[in-house]
Design a protein around this nucleic acid. Structure first.
Lengths: 229, 229
DNA sequence: TCAAAAGTGTTTCTCGTACACCCATGT
DNA sequence: ACATGGGTGTACGAGAAACACTTTTGA
């Protein structure tokens, strides 16, 4: 193993975000339009440099902190309003034409009731919720990043409770099912999905919330996520 | 998003390896003893700096290449003799007391028939296959890295074909079962495991290889991995 | 002949899937 | 009244788990 040296050339390190939400029964990703070269005018993932710090009085930020900060800066959403998880790190030479850049990709899940609050709605030309169904070309290797993130969120869907990060605080079975359908891009049998759902009820993962919700015809019961017992 | 700048302070970036093998029905990790401070004399994961490059004629290496290079340097095994996959990236300030270091962790799977060939056998004081059963304190945040890697390999076990990366080119059902048992740290019913195994046979994932193998009593049939149809 | 591991059979239970059907409400 | 989505019932099949059993070898 090589000896430690301060003289090694060092790469730039960024954090890039794949910010998901489910709107109109559709999985969407937040993209921003680049204002500067390279890839000027292209759509890209939000992201930025990790604050590294210069000395002990300025230690810099962790990767997770950088991800949270970027999310806040890009969306205006307060901290803690989104679930964040690391996806993968990309570091191939040449992926940024300017210099060697290593990018740590995080995915963030934004609840649909918060999604309309972001700046996307005020400045739609430069920030946009984009459906996965009709993809655009993305700057750098950002399309690869998106694919990795989509694979990851699909994996997590049936193994963890992330679906609850993509519904409002109270929700109906149909709303939760639509989240699953949007992420997996396939239809679920409503009856069978309800059965899986009921198991969570008896397991104490969710509980019935007061009231009903109107979705077009017969009003549906609403539920609340409690957490994994 | 902040404008691009060459003057940002940049972190050091390393690749660290969690190298797994299964020996004596036991999941083992390759550790090296540090010869220099900090953590001098402690056990640590093998790893080193990513070659970043200085200009166009010296583009540097990708993270995967760095992982392969490190594996080769630390074990002496030829390239391509191990399965490698990225696990997670660690970047909290202070995780290395000297300067800001961001470490990309890869796991590597070494077949048990190759494991004895590594330098561990020649210089056992400084390189060692260490069982997960009686853990040692590790330098830096390497224990957290190991835990992440173990979680990942367990996840992958029933979802992918990684088990075949930890058996010789031809193997018996018992050998494959022992790999599963070592990784999951639990016993499997031999009869039931055989049934799962047989399904792979009819699915064309594996095929019968000529000959039998002696493991103490009745000789067992040997099989060969073909790949996922 | 006995221990030990290879390999088979059987039974039970759970869960996913398919699909028919009833229920409550807006139009 | 009827369309629409909420919600229930049922029947089948695949596969996990538990476990008794037979077979083939070395010692």
């Amino acid at each position: 193993m090589s000896a430690f040296s301060y003289s090694h050339p060092r790469p730039s390190v960024t954090v890039d975000l794949v910010i998901f939400t489910v709107l109109d029964t559709d999985l969407k990703i937040l993209l921003i339009r680049r204002k500067v070269p390279p890839f000027q005018g292209w759509w890209a993932l939000p992201g930025g440099f990790v604050k590294v710090g210069r000395d002990d009085s300025d230690p810099g930020e962790s990767l997770e902190d950088a991800a949270h900060r970027e999310l806040e800066e890009e969306t205006g959403l307060p901290r803690g309003s989104a679930f964040i998880e690391q996806v993968h790190t990309f570091g191939k030479p040449g992926r940024d034409p300017r210099t060697r850049v290593i990018s740590v990709v995080y995915m963030a899940l934004v609840r649909p009731d918060l999604a309309p609050l972001i700046r996307a709605s005020t400045d739609a030309a430069d920030v946009q919720w984009r459906s996965m169904k009709n993809p655009v070309a993305l700057a750098f290797d950002h399309m690869t990043m998106v694919e990795k993130a989509v694979t990851k969120i699909r994996d997590r869907l049936d193994r963890t409770s992330i679906a609850f990060e993509l519904v409002p605080p109270t929700f109906t079975t149909a709303e939760l099912r639509q989240v699953h359908e949007a992420i997996k891009a396939e239809a679920y049998d409503p009856g069978n999905f309800r059965r899986r759902f009921k198991r969570m009820l008896t397991d104490g993962v969710i509980e019935k919330a007061p009231g009903k919700r109107q979705t077009g015809s017969r009003p549906a019961s609403v539920y609340r996520f409690l957490g994994i017992g």
